[in-house]
């Protein structure tokens, strides 16, 4: 019996044309991993607060460097995207909006809302930040 022949595998992402659905799906995972890294920072920040003014000042300086600002912006977007798309997933779990039309509509809504919330948070955070 020739059972050792390699079977075709699916989905083969090299030949898959990116679609909104697949891109948002993998973005949910990527933002999840980014937020995992960010959560380490949240704990480190809490420890810095507990440690006192010097440790906090150091954390604050690092967060205000351009690397820190860039990471913060990325984490804020990752947070809002993962949150909005998570609510989309929860709706699907309850069997709401699982038709192709509404999947695309909710997908674009998630993108728009997470970008708006990111810009809003960024603006509010910078206003009076310094």
């Amino acid at each position: 019996m020739a059972t050792t022949r390699l079977r075709p595998r699916s989905p083969d992402i090299q030949i898959y044309r990116p679609q909104l659905t697949s891109v948002l799906s993998i973005l949910h995972r990527i933002t999840g991993v980014l937020l995992s890294v960010g959560s380490v920072l949240l704990v480190a920040w809490l420890v810095a607060v507990a440690d006192g003014g010097d440790a906090y000042a150091m954390a604050d300086r690092w967060l205000h460097s351009w690397v820190g600002m860039l990471l913060l912006l990325g984490w804020i977007f990752a947070l809002f995207y993962h949150l909005c798309n998570g609510i989309r997933h929860l709706a699907w779990d309850l069997d709401f909006g699982f038709e192709l039309g509404s999947i695309y509509r909710s997908g674009w809504t998630v993108v728009a809302v997470s970008v708006i919330l990111t810009l809003l948070t960024w603006t509010l955070g910078l206003a009076g930040g310094e």
Binding site: V49, Y56, D60, I76, I87, L90, T121, G129
Partner: peptide, 23 residues
């Protein structure tokens, strides 16, 4: 996930309100 929706919104709003005041 359901628990984190209100909790994380609380965290973002609180940090915006208090983080600028320093240690």
């Amino acid at each position: 996930a359901v628990a984190l929706v209100p909790l994380l919104l609380w965290l973002v709003v609180s940090l915006l309100a208090h983080a600028r005041g320093g240690h």
